[in-house]
C-alpha cells in the first residue's frame, strides 16, 4: 500500500516535563521550562498537517498538558478534521481537565503505565505517587467517556508485570492497552532493553493475552515483527516498520524525523513546508525502500519486505538506520551471552 502522506504525525510539543523517566526518548527534563513553539507557529503546523491529509495528530512531549495552550492546539486540530490523540503521564489530569478533554473531542488519550505496581512504575518514572496519579487519570478520563489507552513500554525491569498491567488497565476502564517497544535513543541505555529472547517471549505472552481479553479490552502492540506471527487478516501488512511511511515525528527543534524513536532529521520546518519535506526528503525515500537495508539480520531475512525490522533500533545500536535490528527475536542480530546481545559480526571475528 502506497501512502501519499503519513497516517499519523507525532508532534513533540514541548520538552518540559513533570516526570523523570529513565527511558525518555525525547530527553525531556523536569522543570525544563517553556521550550516550545509560539502559538501562531504551532497553529500553522496543525494547518499544514491537515492540508497534507494527515489523519491522526499525536501531541507528545515532554508532557503535553504542561503547555498552557494545549486546549487551543487540540481545538484547532479537531476543527481541521484530524483525529487527536495525546500521551500523558497523568499528573495533570484532574476531573476538570478530563471533562475538558472530552468536550474538545479528543479521540484517545494514552496514559503511560510501565508497571502494575507503584514500586515498578515509580522506579521508571521517578516521581513519588505517579503510579497512583496515573491510575487516577485513567479512571477519571474513562468515567467522562474519553477513550483511554494504557501505554506499556517493556524494559528488563517490568517484563514480569505485563499480564497484571492488562488486568489493571481493564479495571480502571481503559479501552486498550498497547505495548510499544523500547528503543534506547537518548536517555535510556542499552541495559534497559530486553534481550531478543525476552522480547519474543513477552510478545508470545502478549498475543495470547490479546485472545484471552478479547471483548473486554483491546490488547494491542506496536512492534514491527508481531504481524509475522499472526495469521491472515490480523497480520496487517502495514504493521511492519512504518518509519517515514505511515508516520513521522516533529521535534521541538522543528526537525522532521522518520519515527518517534529515530533521531535522524530529514528536513526542518523553518526551511520547508511539511508536505514538501514529506515528498522530497532523500532520507525519507531511502528509508521507505527496504532494499536500502544493507547489513545485519534483516538483509537476508525472508520477512524483510513485510517487516523491515526496527530502523530506530538499528540506528540506536549501530549509529546506522540501515543495518540489523538488534531487538528482533525471529532472526536475532547476535548471540545472547551472559545476559547481553553480542552482535553476529563480533561473534564471528
Amino acid at each position: 500500500m502506497k501512502l501519499t502522506t503519513p497516517l499519523y504525525v507525532v508532534w513533540e510539543t514541548t520538552l518540559d516535563c513533570n516526570a523523570r523517566c529513565v527511558h525518555c526518548y525525547s530527553d525531556a527534563t523536569f522543570g525544563h521550562g517553556p521550550v516550545f513553539w509560539p502559538l501562531g507557529e504551532s497553529l500553522d503546523l496543525i494547518d499544514q498537517l491537515a492540508e497534507a491529509g494527515v489523519i491522526i495528530i499525536a501531541f507528545s512531549g515532554g508532557e503535553f498538558l504542561l503547555r498552557p495552550d494545549w486546549e487551543l492546539l487540540t481545538e484547532r486540530a479537531v476543527d481541521r478534521g484530524m483525529q487527536v490523540t495525546f500521551a500523558t503521564n497523568g499528573l495533570r489530569v484532574s476531573e476538570v481537565v478530563a471533562r475538558r478533554i472530552k468536550e474538545l473531542g479528543v479521540a484517545n488519550v494514552s496514559v503511560s503505565l510501565d508497571g502494575a505496581t507503584a514500586e515498578v512504575h515509580e522506579a521508571i518514572r521517578r516521581i513519588p505517587r505517579i503510579f497512583e496519579r496515573a491510575c487516577e487519570a485513567v479512571r477519571l478520563l474513562a468515567e467522562v467517556g474519553v477513550r483511554v489507552t494504557v501505554n506499556y513500554t517493556p524494559m528488563r525491569t517490568n517484563l514480569a508485570q505485563a499480564e497484571d498491567l492488562i488486568a489493571l488497565a481493564y479495571g480502571l476502564g481503559a479501552k486498550k492497552v498497547n505495548l510499544t517497544e523500547y528503543v534506547y535513543t537518548t536517555r535510556g541505555g542499552v541495559d534497559l532493553m530486553p534481550l531478543p529472547s525476552e522480547l519474543g517471549s513477552l510478545i508470545a505472552r502478549w498475543t495470547r493475552a490479546s485472545d484471552a481479553w478479547k471483548g473486554r479490552i483491546d490488547v494491542d502492540w506496536h512492534d514491527c515483527r508481531v504481524a509475522l506471527i499472526l495469521p491472515g487478516a490480523e497480520a496487517d501488512p502495514y504493521k511492519g516498520c512504518g518509519a517515514g511511511y505511515t508516520h513521522c515525528r516533529i521535534t521541538v527543534d522543528h526537525d522532521v524525523t522518520p519515527c518517534v524513536v529515530l533521531p535522524l532529521p530529514v528536513g526542518n520546518l523553518r526551511e520547508k513546508r511539511f508536505v514538501e519535506i514529506w515528498r522530497t526528503a532523500p532520507e525519507l525515500h531511502r528509508i521507505r525502500d527496504r532494499a536500502n537495508i544493507r547489513g545485519g539480520n534483516c538483509v537476508a531475512c525472508e520477512h524483510i519486505d513485510r517487516c523491515g525490522g526496527c530502523r530506530a533500533a538499528s540506528f540506536a545500536r549501530y549509529g546506522d538506520a540501515y543495518l540489523g535490528d538488534p531487538t528482533c527475536w525471529i532472526k536475532p542480530d547476535g548471540v545472547e551471552i551472559d545476559g547481553r546481545l553480542v552482535a553476529n559480526e563480533m561473534v564471528r571475528s
Binding site: 502506497k2 501512502l3 497516517l7 491529509g53 489523519i55 491522526i56 478534521g81 483525529q83 479521540a107
Partner: peptide, 16 residues
Amino acid sequence: IRCRAEDQGNYLLYNP
C-alpha cells in the same frame, strides 16, 4: 470513517 485520496485513483478508508 476518514477517507483520503491516494495515488493512482485509490482511496484510503481509516476506521478509528
